[in-house]
Simulated assay, not measured.
Amino acid sequence: MPPAKKRPRTYDPARTRAAVLAQFDNVRAAVAGLTPEQLALPTRLDGWTVRDLVAHIGMALTAVHRALDQPQPAKADAVLLDWPFGTSGNSAAIADFTRRLAVDHPDLDAYLADTDTGLRALLDAHPGTRLLATSAGALSLDDYLVTRVVELVVHTDDLNAAVAGLEVPYDRQALAACTRLLADALAVKAPGGSTEVRVPPYAVVQCVEGPRHTRGTPPNVVETDPLTWIRLATGRLGWKEALADARVSASGERADLGAYLPVMA
């Protein structure tokens, strides 16, 4: 008899909204101090400068506005965990839109301030149950905001990697939500119960086909920290590189996750 399906993880809507706003505030504060030379630096995103990356972070939040401007779908036809697997198909269009935004908004501070003001007004005006048409299908506003947290955290890490000495902080709730969603996405991509993936203090998931662990110490265990996990899950860091640098520990014959990563690209 197959194991019962786990109930999908839920996210507290108030905490999610607070996390979006807090992480965006962190980004805005850091970007305000960047020089033109720093904004012209390359990033680990192919062909993107820091200026492009900052414009994209704003775009990730104005996406809420664009989605709310569209007619409301008749019903939800997607779940939150569909989203990580539907992001790569629009990469070319997203890159083109991002570069146009960077050109059209030379004053990034003003652009981000307007984005913040507009987002706060939208969140005050719309209930979390309001359905939005997204790249993954029709999701509630509450669920879509969880995806915005992921975008903010992942691209905060990209910013920190691009600018020497820059240390944009991570809101704890934002980092937790990003870690959990990407860990749950791995469990969807590699279903099973033979391997336990631990990302303390935020997430533990069972995945990979094979003998299911029921009690005691699991025979196959992978453990890493949240930022390393996020980099692995989004293709910023390779599995073999992470092992070689001791940024991840893996024990057991089914603890090689290389074939399942990244889960979101």
Rank of each mutant, 00 (worst) to 15 (best):
Met1Gly: 03
Pro2Phe: 00
Lys6His: 08
Pro8Thr: 13
Thr10Trp: 13
Asp12Ile: 02
Ala14Arg: 15
Ala14Leu: 13
Arg15Phe: 09
Thr16Asp: 13
Val20Met: 06
Val20Lys: 07
Leu21Gln: 09
Phe24Asp: 03
Asn26Ser: 09
Asn26Glu: 09
Val27Gln: 02
Arg28Met: 03
Ala29Met: 06
Ala29Thr: 10
Ala32Met: 09
Thr35Cys: 02
Glu37His: 00
Gln38Pro: 06
Pro42Val: 10
Leu45Glu: 13
Gly47Asp: 05
Gly47Asn: 03
Val50Pro: 00
Val50Met: 07
Leu53Arg: 04
Ile57Met: 04
Gly58Lys: 03
Leu61Ser: 06
Thr62Ala: 05
Asp69Ile: 11
Gln70Trp: 11
Pro71His: 14
Ala74Thr: 12
Lys75Met: 01
Ala78Trp: 03
Leu80Asn: 02
Asp82Leu: 00
Phe85Glu: 09
Thr87His: 07
Thr87Arg: 07
Thr87Leu: 12
Ser88Ala: 11
Gly89Met: 05
Asn90Thr: 15
Ala92Pro: 13
Ile94Val: 15
Asp107Val: 07
Leu108Lys: 07
Tyr111Ala: 09
Thr115Met: 06
Thr117Phe: 14
Leu123Asn: 04
Leu123Gly: 12
Gly128Asn: 11
Thr129Arg: 03
Arg130Thr: 15
Leu131Asp: 08
Thr134Ala: 05
Gly137Met: 01
Leu139Val: 06
Leu139Gln: 13
Leu145Ala: 10
Thr147Leu: 02
Val149Glu: 05
Glu151Cys: 06
Glu151Met: 07
Val154Gly: 08
His155Trp: 00
Thr156Phe: 05
Asp157Met: 10
Asp157Phe: 04
Asp157Leu: 11
Asp158Arg: 01
Gly165Phe: 09
Gly165Pro: 06
Glu167Asp: 15
Tyr170Val: 13
Ala174Met: 10
Cys178Val: 12
Thr179Ser: 08
Ala187Val: 04
Ala190Cys: 04
Thr195Met: 07
Glu196Val: 15
Val197Phe: 03
Val199Tyr: 11
Val204Phe: 10
Cys207Asp: 03
Pro211Cys: 10
His213Asn: 04
Thr214His: 08
Gly216Tyr: 00
Thr217Cys: 08
Glu223Gly: 11
Trp229Ser: 03
Ile230Thr: 12
Arg231Tyr: 05
Leu237Val: 00
Gly238Phe: 01
Gly238Trp: 05
Ala242Ile: 11
Leu243His: 09
Ala244Glu: 14
Asp245Arg: 15
Ala246Thr: 11
Arg247Val: 06
Ser249Pro: 11
Ser251Leu: 10
Glu253Leu: 13
Leu261Val: 03
